[in-house]
């Protein structure tokens, strides 16, 4: 990869900020290196901390097309890479038979039905064969089985796909690839070795405040600061599930809608259910906020 997408390191940060993604130094450095080294990035961290959003934002900032492979248990080659549209093929066979049953030539028919027109291109093949600039997002990779993970690794090592009936398709450019994981399963060492690793945790106070200011229309700096402080305070408790950035944003929007400018304990308690999902967490946080530190 010779041409560089982002210029220098600060260019990454500024570019992301322009598409409303607030990166810290760690995030910016890894994105920068991914492009320079042509290596995929494996992003790991708690839910709702901006992993998926980062890939989308990198695509947006660099004017690349985002191709997304959403992983799930049971995802296989046919859904990730490509598959022959056998329904269509069968119908073609049927149709041919009907017209000219005696002169059926299997070889010809085979050539006929193994062509682009019968190929269902799935995200991985789409990214490999793309001629334009693309960002490939392989989202929640920890959900696939180990066999599919091996397939991903193969693609991310060679950037080529061979289709027995058609030949080998080679990438004309190495796309920027982001894999995200919620760490429900340990990924293979080989895949981790192949990737740059980025752990995205909850943002620190200042960055969370900036995210709120950027994403919530009509919010004051004062309120954003208070929100970030309360959220930080709540995250220090031992909870079943700490509030994520998306929940912080939901809460901020609610407070703005309610016309609140200074959060008091009562308002905080009444709206805690937006920030926290478990009843027990809500009760714990409510209790904690009431007692003076």
């Amino acid at each position: 990869m010779n041409e560089t997408m982002f210029g220098d390191l600060s260019g990454v940060r500024e570019g992301l900020a322009k598409v409303e993604y607030l990166a810290d130094d760690g995030i910016a450095s890894v994105v920068f290196l991914a492009e320079r080294l042509g290596k995929p990035v494996l992003i790991e961290g708690p839910a709702g901390t901006g992993k998926t959003e980062l890939a989308k934002s990198v695509a947006a900032m660099s004017g690349a097309r985002l191709i997304r492979l959403q992983c799930y248990e049971g995802l296989d080659e046919a859904k990730a890479l490509y598959e022959w549209n056998y329904k269509k093929q069968l119908l073609r066979i049927q149709a041919d038979r009907g017209v000219d049953a005696e002169h059926e030539d299997w070889v010809e028919l085979q050539d006929d039905i193994f062509q682009d027109e019968f190929l269902l291109t799935r995200p991985l093949l789409e990214a490999i064969s793309a001629q334009d600039k693309v960002v490939l997002l392989i989202d929640e990779v920890d959900r696939v089985e180990i066999e599919t993970e091996a397939l991903l690794l193969e693609i991310l090592s060679d950037y080529q796909v061979s289709i027995p009936e058609l030949g080998t398709i080679m990438a004309s450019q190495i796309p920027l690839v982001f894999l995200t994981s919620n760490n429900t399963r340990e990924l293979s060492e080989a895949l981790k070795r192949r990737c740059l690793f980025l752990h995205i945790d909850y943002p620190d106070l200042e960055r969370e405040k900036q995210i709120v200011l950027t994403k919530v229309a009509g919010i004051s700096e004062n309120l954003a600061e208070q929100i970030a402080r309360v959220v930080r305070s709540i995250r220090q408790l031992e909870l079943k599930k700490a509030p994520s950035v998306s929940e912080t944003l939901d809460w901020a929007r609610t407070l703005v809608l309610l016309g609140i400018e200074n959060i008091d304990v009562e308002q905080a308690k009444e709206t805690l259910h937006i920030l926290l999902k478990y009843q027990s967490d809500i009760e714990k946080a409510a209790k904690e906020l009431t007692v003076e530190a």
Binding site: L9, D25, G26, S29, V30, F32, L33, V41, L42, E44, G45, E189, K192, R193, C195, L196, F197, L198, H199
Partner: peptide, 15 residues
């Protein structure tokens, strides 16, 4: 800082 993150991203694959 960037130097540190570059080393971390390439050498440390476990939080």
């Amino acid at each position: 800082d960037a130097f540190k993150y570059a080393l971390a991203a390439t050498l440390v694959k476990n939080e």
